[in-house]
Design a protein around this nucleic acid. Sequence first.
DNA 1: GGCCACATCTGCAACGATGTACCCAGCCCG
DNA 2: CGGGCTGGGTACATCGTTGCAGATGTGGCC
Lengths: 334, 334
Amino acid sequence: MAVTMNDVARAAGVSLKTVSNVINNYEFIRPATKQRVLDAIDELGYETNLTARSLRSGKTSMLGLVLADLSIPYYAELASDIMKAALSRGYRVLVEQSGNEAEHEKAVLQGQFRSLTDGLLFIPLAIDAEQIIAAAGRKPLVLLGEFVQDPRLDMVLIQNKEAAAAVTAHLLAGGRRRIAVLGAHDGDTTGSNGLRLEGYKAALAAAGMAYDPALVIPCDWRRDGGADATARLLDSGVEFDAVFGLNDALALGAMHELLLRGRKVPEEIAVAGFDDLDESRFASPSLTTVAPGRAEIAERAVELLIQRIESKDAVPTVQRPEAAFELRVRQSAP
Amino acid sequence: MAVTMNDVARAAGVSLKTVSNVINNYEFIRPATKQRVLDAIDELGYETNLTARSLRSGKTSMLGLVLADLSIPYYAELASDIMKAALSRGYRVLVEQSGNEAEHEKAVLQGQFRSLTDGLLFIPLAIDAEQIIAAAGRKPLVLLGEFVQDPRLDMVLIQNKEAAAAVTAHLLAGGRRRIAVLGAHDGDTTGSNGLRLEGYKAALAAAGMAYDPALVIPCDWRRDGGADATARLLDSGVEFDAVFGLNDALALGAMHELLLRGRKVPEEIAVAGFDDLDESRFASPSLTTVAPGRAEIAERAVELLIQRIESKDAVPTVQRPEAAFELRVRQSAP
DNA sequence: GGCCACATCTGCAACGATGTACCCAGCCCG
DNA sequence: CGGGCTGGGTACATCGTTGCAGATGTGGCC
């Protein structure tokens, strides 16, 4: 059905291999020959069969990206950045939604999905380092985010702690004294939740303020999680003059609930988030947040993964680029 | 390096083909043999090489999805739904971002991208039906949305006109008399913009109201486009008591600008959108909008495309499922 | 003139799976 | 008892490319 190299070869009066050489820019081909081949390709409308090439070369030129769900804006924006970074380096991205389920995450690490990709970018949420190492195959793997940390794994970190501290410090500088934190448990110390909570505590300590566990409310990292948590907080009667959502979705949910209940933002209660989603800029009031350097994270992760794929040495050195963050002060917490 | 069927065959003491038969659930295999093969697979950790299978079978079991950019929430949410619909039918989705550029859209229709997929779901934005037909290859293609319409192409429509009319009627029922429309040119009659504008006009006519072109403001379908358009509208001095953003992003941008300028929503000016993004529910005030039945669109599009892929008859019948819409009345336009 | 070096091009085998054809044993049936 | 059928399995070619190992031709140089 489709046009193959053989057809092109016949049309151009050369061998199949010469067509292959032309396509792969082999150096020693007479210009005239090359032109004949190119003309034939044009005329017949030949397209390389990437499947065949993959089989032969053992490379698919695709990166796998495993995340919870594209309908979550942070992941969608990150995916977009990653796809662009990959494309500029000659790779495509195959996205897989794990739905935040441990079984699914494990399956993806070993399953057939791997055979379609040369390497994996993985945002683990439900499984830990041991499980990842146990389940992962031999192909390159780079972790994103920071729910998991292990010296045996490549990963690209973001400055969770520092950035969270910066947000907290900003709220304190604005005169807030009782800052509620949404999206963590009191005891958390690892993962994005734990590290951001640590940053919060560090900023409090630096300001000589006491840490009150009653202000730390666990919940799903989604808008409705933030709204629910805020409702619970308001109902509980605990006093607070600011809310720090450990991600923007939480903060936006919180703000929605606060306004719904007639609390003034930021006059009565300031709100701040973490991620700098596009929508945060257009919220009303616009959301103060911290940009974790998403584009840079995407670039670095893609670069690191491709390096692993293309480098001959199989020795997995640990490398942890730290992407820069930037505080975005807006109306919700001036 | 990797374990192949050959290795499994040797380990199980059967022929390579028998392993293949076991994997493909060929009926006539003695249970004992089957078990031996399965044990060998388990022991060696064999995984089918999907690339090889694709080459041999001529099917990749992947659907291509071409959209402007995943960072746009509507596309991200649609992509998520499409991936789920495809996965439940045994297909994966390979996403390609066109960036809304005509050249890129054309390239994707013919380029190597096609050889990686069995069929394409395409949301055309920058090119028209003629260009699509000229550029498209022989593989199945299903269009989404409604920027393009042509009887020679398969597509899944949404009820742009009817849904837009419903939104407009709702605003009118709320007593609004001067409804600005963001995201269309006065003369538009085709594409999502044109059709939604037509719906708007139809609702006005049904209510016996005059249509005023001065209320129709063209702009990019993004939050900042909506904000800019609203700023221009306010500056122009044209009177209006409601804003209908032709998508939610526009409406949210508009609402942001209105509130920024101290206009009360919905008391002074009501705001309504189109899409029912997740974030619209949590905007403050929450956004009145219309849900176009995204999940159903995704299901239908995937179903139609897979039907085209798997059906033997190559005759391209025109089929246009109409997904149902639902008005979501919220605070911004009660 | 002979030989080497190099540019240019070719043929064959392979990547790892599946389709097709075929083989063999057992069994039923006339 | 022979022929046909059917269950259970195998061998080989093949999908469209690329790597490897030549084969050919041309010019330069001693």
